[in-house]
Simulated assay, not measured.
Amino acid sequence: MSTAERPDGGGRLLTGVAWALLLLGLWLWGKDVSGGPGGLSAPTTGDVAAVGRPLGVPLPPAHEPVEGVEPRRLEVPSIGVAAPVVARGLDASGAIDPPPYEMPHTIGWFGSGSRPGSDGAALFVGHVDTETKPAVLYGLSAVRPGERIKVTGDDGSVAEFTIDDVQVLGRHEFDPGQAYGQRHPGRPELRLITCGGTFDRTLGAYTANVVVSAYLTDTG
């Protein structure tokens, strides 16, 4: 189904991502799940696995935490993303308030959470499409483990993260700890999230979320 055939483009991000982030304000920051720095990439799941992601990609060691700065720009070179970043808070339901519908090519950062490069998991969200065309994270499910995400801070510094996991998590299999929890104590991490799966007209929402996980490997 083309994006032009889907109703209410702005609302799709809100309903597709908000349900996944509903528990964010309760406990996910500081919630640890198993994992480790460097080594080999984890198997991908869902829609991503279906397109043949390579498994066991060698990954570089993690960089030690830095002070972290407020992000101003996020880049994913492998899919041509280079977008401004704005800080966002939680809405009345406890979900991240995404960028306004008029800003489909802007990425939102949960400003009350971890700063990218610091100890913890910095959380970013973005639109997948609008009523008529792709938005900033339309191609997110195409990224591969080993590829890079670059975050430019308000002081001009650049933190480089290496992708180690790509998952498409449906409503019935969504695990907030796996999606957002820091996977290794003391490791600076990043999550980049958008809608995934298919648009369900009955629910008025996407059926899944694409969750890309990365960890700090270089600074400059």
Score class of each variant (00 low, 15 high):
residue 152 T to M: 11
residue 175 D to L: 07
residue 160 E to P: 01
residue 124 F to S: 04
residue 161 F to C: 10
residue 162 T to A: 13
residue 179 A to W: 01
residue 130 T to A: 08
residue 167 Q to E: 13
residue 160 E to S: 14
residue 168 V to S: 14
residue 126 G to E: 09
residue 163 I to W: 00
residue 138 Y to P: 00
residue 139 G to R: 15
residue 148 R to L: 15
residue 164 D to F: 12
residue 164 D to P: 00
residue 168 V to T: 15
residue 141 S to F: 12
residue 127 H to I: 07
residue 150 K to A: 12
residue 170 G to W: 06
residue 123 L to K: 03
residue 128 V to R: 15
residue 164 D to S: 09
residue 164 D to A: 06
residue 160 E to W: 01
residue 132 T to V: 14
residue 139 G to T: 04
residue 122 A to P: 04
residue 133 K to P: 00
residue 131 E to G: 14
residue 166 V to Q: 04
residue 176 P to W: 00
residue 177 G to W: 00
residue 136 V to T: 09
residue 124 F to R: 07
residue 175 D to S: 14
residue 157 S to W: 02
residue 139 G to V: 00
residue 131 E to I: 01
residue 176 P to N: 02
residue 137 L to Q: 07
residue 142 A to G: 11
residue 162 T to S: 12
residue 177 G to E: 06
residue 175 D to R: 11
residue 154 D to G: 07
residue 137 L to V: 08
residue 167 Q to K: 14
residue 168 V to M: 10
residue 132 T to K: 13
residue 141 S to P: 01
residue 166 V to R: 08
residue 158 V to Y: 09
residue 137 L to N: 08
residue 170 G to E: 13
residue 126 G to S: 11
residue 133 K to W: 04
residue 127 H to M: 10
residue 169 L to F: 02
residue 147 E to C: 06
residue 149 I to K: 03
residue 161 F to W: 07
residue 171 R to M: 09
residue 125 V to M: 05
residue 156 G to D: 05
residue 152 T to H: 08
residue 142 A to F: 14
residue 164 D to Q: 07
residue 143 V to R: 03
residue 140 L to Q: 05
residue 140 L to W: 04
residue 171 R to C: 01
residue 175 D to H: 05
residue 151 V to K: 08
residue 155 D to I: 01
residue 151 V to C: 09
residue 166 V to D: 03
residue 171 R to H: 12
residue 157 S to Q: 11
residue 167 Q to A: 15
residue 140 L to P: 04
residue 154 D to Q: 06
residue 134 P to M: 04
residue 128 V to Q: 13
residue 173 E to Y: 09
residue 172 H to E: 15
residue 150 K to N: 08
residue 131 E to D: 15
residue 177 G to L: 00
residue 143 V to H: 03
residue 150 K to R: 15
residue 160 E to T: 15
residue 146 G to C: 06
residue 169 L to I: 07
residue 136 V to H: 03
residue 125 V to A: 03
residue 137 L to D: 05
residue 133 K to S: 14
residue 146 G to T: 05
residue 128 V to F: 05
residue 165 D to L: 14
residue 129 D to C: 12
residue 129 D to T: 10
residue 122 A to H: 03
residue 159 A to D: 13
residue 155 D to P: 02
residue 129 D to Y: 00
residue 133 K to F: 07
residue 159 A to H: 12
residue 145 P to M: 12
residue 145 P to G: 12
residue 138 Y to C: 06
residue 134 P to W: 02
residue 128 V to P: 00
residue 123 L to S: 04
residue 129 D to K: 01
residue 140 L to A: 08
